[in-house]
Design a protein around this nucleic acid. Structure first.
Lengths: 330, 330
DNA sequence: TTGAAAGCGTTACCAC
DNA sequence: GTGGTAACGCTTTCAA
C-alpha cells in the first residue's frame, strides 16, 4: 500500500501538503493540488485509517453488541444500523454476546482497544460498564432510565395483543412469557397481563425460552397443560410459529378454535399458513434510529439524553379472527 | 484510557520494560515484572490495538462481506465465522454488499484502510479486486478455481433434490431457479436439471428472486403457469416456504398432491406445517471452516490453496412423501 | 536486565 | 502557500 510519503515524493512536495489536499484544509495552490491529486490516483493511494485513528484518538469504527445474530429479530436491527453507518462512512464491528455478561465485557474491552467511536448495545442492561467507558453508548431494544436508548412501545404492544384477542372472542388465553431478564419482553408481558386481569376471561402463564428448540418444546407443553386454550399471546413470533405448527399438527382449526398472536413480525411470519397475526416492531427502523442517535451524540457530545420509543402496530393476518367476531362463541 | 507511559511511570520503569512484560518477550527481572503487573492492574491498562496495528502493519480485524444479513442463510454463516474469530482474539468487521459490486469495492477499500488481516467474502466472484490486494482472502459459499473457498456440495444437493422427488413419485416437476449470477444456486439447479433430463418425467423451469417478496410472487405464478405440477424443487427454503404457503392456501394437499423440497435448511423450515423437507447446507459449519481456513492462511501465508467442500444432506420432513411411495400414483 | 530512541502513517502547529 | 516536525501509543533494536 502506498503511503503519504510515497505520494509526496511522487508529487515532489512535502507530506504536509499532501495531507492538506486530502483533508481540504489549509492553503494549497491550485497547481500543486493538481500535482498531488495526480500522484494520489497514480499510486492508488488511500489514507491509512489506523494512523489517522491513532492520531485522532478515535476511529471510524462503531461497535454493535447483539445477543445472537441467528435470532431473526436481530439481523433486521443490524441491517438498519449498518445501513446508516455505511452511508456516513463508518464501519461496524459486531459481537454476539449470547446474553453472557462476561463475553459482553470482553467485547467492550476490545472495542475500546480499537478506539471505537461509540457502541450500540442490544444486550444486557448491566450499564455499570458503560458508565466508566467514556464513549457514547446507545441502548437498543433495551431500556434504562438514565441512558439514551431506542426501543419500541412494548407496553402498547402488550396491551394491543391482549385487547385484540379479547375483542375477537378468545375466552381462555395462555400467555407465553420469555426469560425474565429480558426487560422488553417482560414489559410487554406485563402490559398484556394487566389487560387480561381487568377482563373476565380465564388466563394462564407459561414460561418459554426464545430459542427455536425451546419454542417447539413450549408449544408441546401448552397443549398438554392447557388444552382448552382458545387464544395464545406469544412472547415473539418464533414461539408463536411453534404454537401454530403444533396446533395444526393436532388438527386444531386456526383461528376458529384458537387465535394466536405473536410479537416482532419477523420475515417468516407472513410465510406461514395461516399467516401469523402479530404485533410489529419496526426492527429495521429501530436499528436506523439507534445509529442516527449514536452519530448525533458522537458529533455533539453534550446532546441531551434522548430516548426514542417507536410505535408498534398490529399486523392483521390469518391467525386472528375478524374484528367484531368477539361475539363468535358467546 | 491509561497508556503504556502511564503504566511505566506508575511502575517506575521505562515503556520498553512495560512492553516486554505485556508481550512476554525479552528479559525482565521477576521483581520488576511484578511491579509492572501491579501498575497494569491498578490502572486497568489495556494496550491500544490501534497503535499496535500501526506498528505491525496489521490489525486483529477480519472483514466479512455478505450479500444481506437479513437473508436467513447468512446469519448462520456469520455466526460460525464470528465464533471462531472470537475464540482466537480477532474481531469482525461486517458489510452488506447487496450483491452490488461497487458497494463491495468500497468495503474492501475501507477494510484495507483499517489494516484488516484478511477477508471472507460470500459475495461476488469478481475476484480481480482480491488479486491486487495482498491480504489473504477466503471465498465462502462461492466458488473460484484459483482461490481458496469453502462451500457445500451444490451438485450433490441438486442431484439429491431431484432424485428424491423422482423416487417418491413426482411426475411433473417445476424447478424454481434463482438469479443466474449466483453461481452456487446455478450449480445446484443444473445438477437437478441433469437428473430430471435423464428421467422420463415432465418438468419446467421458473425463475425467481431470493427475496421474501419475490418468493411470494413466484409462488403465485407457479400455480397459474403450471397448475399440474406435483413436485417443486425450490432454489432455497424461502422460496419453498412461499410455495408451500400458496399451495396450502389453494387447498392442495401436501405432500400427497404435491411434494416440495427446499435448499439450505434455515431455522424456520422446521416450524412450518407441514415442516419443510430440504437439502441442508451446514451453514454454521461453513462459516467456521472459512474462518479457520483464513486463520491458517494468515499464520502461514504459503499454505497451499485449499478448497473445502462440505457435504449436504437430505432432511426428511413433511413436504415429501415416504421413500418407496414412488409407486404412489403410477 | 534495562532504557533511549527510531519508526509505523497521519495531522497540525509553527516557521519561513 | 509550503515544509519541517512533534505527537498519537506501541514495539524493537541497540547500547549501556
Amino acid at each position: 500500500m502506498a503511503t503519504i510519503k510515497d505520494v509526496a515524493k511522487e508529487a515532489g512536495v512535502s507530506v504536509a501538503t499532501v495531507s492538506r489536499v486530502i483533508n481540504r484544509n489549509g492553503y494549497v495552490q491550485e497547481e500543486t493540488r493538481k500535482l498531488v491529486e495526480a500522484a494520489i490516483s497514480k499510486l492508488n493511494y488511500l489514507p491509512n485509517e489506523v494512523a489517522r485513528s491513532l492520531y485522532f484518538q478515535k476511529s471510524k469504527l462503531i461497535g454493535l453488541i447483539i445477543p445472537d445474530i441467528t435470532n431473526p429479530f436481530f439481523p433486521e436491527i443490524a441491517r438498519g444500523v449498518e445501513d446508516v453507518l455505511q452511508q456516513n462512512g463508518y464501519r461496524l464491528i459486531i459481537g454476539n454476546s449470547d446474553e453472557d455478561a462476561e463475553k459482553e465485557v470482553r467485547y467492550i474491552e476490545t472495542f475500546t482497544q480499537h478506539n471505537v467511536l461509540g457502541v450500540i448495545s442490544t444486550s444486557s442492561e448491566e450499564v455499570s460498564q458503560w458508565e466508566k467507558l467514556n464513549i457514547p453508548v446507545v441502548l437498543l431494544d433495551r431500556i434504562h432510565h438514565d441512558f439514551p436508548f431506542v426501543c419500541s412501545d412494548q407496553k402498547e404492544g402488550g396491551r394491543l395483543a391482549a385487547q385484540i384477542l379479547l375483542d375477537r372472542g378468545s375466552r381462555n388465553i395462555t400467555l407465553l412469557r420469555g426469560p425474565k431478564h429480558v426487560r422488553t419482553a417482560y414489559e410487554r408481558f406485563f402490559a398484556a397481563l394487566e389487560v387480561l386481569g381487568k377482563s373476565q376471561v380465564q388466563f394462564q402463564v407459561l414460561n418459554t425460552s426464545f430459542s427455536f428448540d425451546g419454542a417447539l418444546e413450549t408449544a408441546g407443553k401448552l397443549f398438554e397443560l392447557y388444552p382448552d386454550t382458545d387464544g395464545v399471546i406469544a412472547v415473539n413470533d418464533i414461539v408463536a410459529s411453534a404454537v401454530l405448527r403444533e396446533a395444526l399438527r393436532r388438527g386444531r382449526k386456526i383461528p376458529e378454535e384458537m387465535q394466536i398472536i405473536g410479537f416482532d413480525d419477523i420475515p417468516m411470519s407472513k410465510f406461514l399458513f395461516p399467516a401469523l397475526s402479530t404485533i410489529q416492531q419496526p426492527a429495521y427502523e429501530m436499528g436506523k434510529e439507534a445509529a442516527k442517535l449514536l452519530l448525533e451524540r458522537i458529533r455533539q457530545a453534550d446532546i441531551k439524553k434522548k430516548q426514542i420509543i417507536l410505535p408498534v402496530s398490529f399486523v392483521e393476518r390469518e391467525t386472528t379472527r375478524k374484528a367484531g367476531d368477539g361475539t363468535w362463541q358467546k
